[in-house]
Design a protein around this nucleic acid. Sequence first.
DNA 1: GGAAAACATTTTAGGCTTAAAACAATTTGG
DNA 2: CCAAATTGTTTTAAGCCTAAAATGTTTTCC
Lengths: 172, 172
Amino acid sequence: MPAANDCIEMLDSETKAVETPEDHADELRLWLRLLTCTTLIEGEVRGRLRQRFDVTLPRFDLMAQLDKAADGMTLSDVSKRMMVSNGNVTGLVERLVESGHLDRRTSETDRRVQVIRLTKLGRAEFRRMASEHETWIADLFADLTPKDVRELMRLLAKTKASAQKSAGRRRP
Amino acid sequence: MPAANDCIEMLDSETKAVETPEDHADELRLWLRLLTCTTLIEGEVRGRLRQRFDVTLPRFDLMAQLDKAADGMTLSDVSKRMMVSNGNVTGLVERLVESGHLDRRTSETDRRVQVIRLTKLGRAEFRRMASEHETWIADLFADLTPKDVRELMRLLAKTKASAQKSAGRRRP
DNA sequence: GGAAAACATTTTAGGCTTAAAACAATTTGG
DNA sequence: CCAAATTGTTTTAAGCCTAAAATGTTTTCC
């Protein structure tokens, strides 16, 4: 094979318009590790919530969103914050209203909008759960030093930004 | 209130048998950020798999496990690797056998065990999808430097170990 | 003002997921 | 050897979740 060919390939690789299959194994491994960590912790939290409080993780997450919003939230807000589909929120809210944890009313100014809030019961139960939940999380991350935590925060912020940019390129 | 009380509290805090509510806000924020990153990327991959190949993420994940195992795997193995429940795998496999992607047979040596493998079709389709999938992941992580990737790998390994230890303390 | 676009939510259909119980087969320890 | 424990899988009941279509409401903009 003539040497000229190698030159062309090298030029290609420098201009980033490459034919040769690039190696993305590292990123793939990173993604799998990220997924493993999340799945592991999520499963642990899910199990503890069920055992200790007989509540599901999605219900807890939804209540967590509402606890931060004194004036309530619309279903769309919740859906965006939780990064789940609208229909998912509809069902989740239905069950939490049914069990007396949420209050739901149609907005006065826009009849399309449903505003939901924690009831007194819902807030009390959530606070009780959240306090214990926080200690579980601390325990799960216990072997990380404060520096590790800072560094992870920084790198995950960068990861999030990168992923959002990439997602945005596809669906602008 | 007498000053002696403060001394006792301080001793407690040093011996780690503490009454005062410790601040775990950082770990909580870290956990939420980790979850956000994973959800974001997972949703993006899920959408692309559906649009591009009309396949669900769980099916893809299951096939990915089998692609690495030339001699097939038992349902239990798959269940552990994917970190999902046994019943979940049963249903997933059922549908993939139905669609011709998987082959399933009872083990010769232990009639409790089901061994599953990719069919020729399953392997071909998976390889086709996996190659594109790898470029998506690379793109989603594109803004991370090689050093960022290494550092994240290291910190996530530490996180995983910490979480496993904590989970093990509860369920030994 | 009114048609068209945009928005918020619900519905639908199908698949995913879990925890727990049930079932079947094998291994273990008297 | 055989009862008891363990292991691998399936079943069950309930809930979670998504994408896409449908419904009702508000805004936009001609």
